[in-house]
Amino acid sequence: MEELGRIHQLIIPFFGHDLTFNLEVIIMTWIVISILLLFGFLASSKKGVIPGPLQVVGELLVAQLFALTEDALGEELGKKYAPLICALFMFLVLSNWIGIVPMMHEPTKDLNTPLSLGLLGFFISHYLGIKTKGIKAYLKAYVDPFFFMMPLNVIGEVAKVVSISFRLFGNIMGGSIIILVISYLVYNLILPPFLNAFFGVFVGAIQAFVFTMLTLVYIAVQVK
């Protein structure tokens, strides 16, 4: 049970401060990125009218996510931001699924990954809000319905980042803790594969989709 909440860290002293790197998370993130790059390369290298299996999967993902983005943001902005949404979804799904391979760990199990992706969505949505509505209309949304509500509106915006990143983190970390504890209690007999299928594949895919859709919807709320 000692594995509960343990992290491999590399701590480098840097001008009186300690720089902490979570090695496992960094390595797993790079593995996920390289698998995605390999998938993209293989899916698009041999393009044809009769598509290969990888090209079918790639086209399916891209077409569905482009349609969802254009529904939410409109034609023009949708084309521009759909690659971001595609990349986010594919990265999150693969990150959540990689934990079912033995010896691999989900990068999303560490709070740093979901929180940085949540902040990414936060900054993109507010940048787009200022750009499309103008700074005046953007700031006016904060003093809605009257001026005293401003602090709470600001806290509400920050709370969105907290809730979106902790939702993903809690589900994935929770799943891995439950798998660890139950595997320990039943001496790794029979149950763990089913738990991996539920928490890894099923919940992982749902949470990746929820995270992506919420990022998209938060952008759409700022734009319109």
Binding site: M1, L4, G5, R167, G170, N171, M173, G174, G175, I177, I178, V181, F202, V203, I206, V210
Partner: peptide
């Protein structure tokens, strides 16, 4: 099934905190 899995999240969070409390 998808909706139930999402609704289950709150229960799973409760289970996780219970396990962390018991095994810390």
């Amino acid at each position: 099934l998808v909706g139930q899995a999402v609704a289950e999240t709150a229960g799973i969070f409760g289970l996780v905190i219970a396990m962390l409390l018991l095994f810390s």
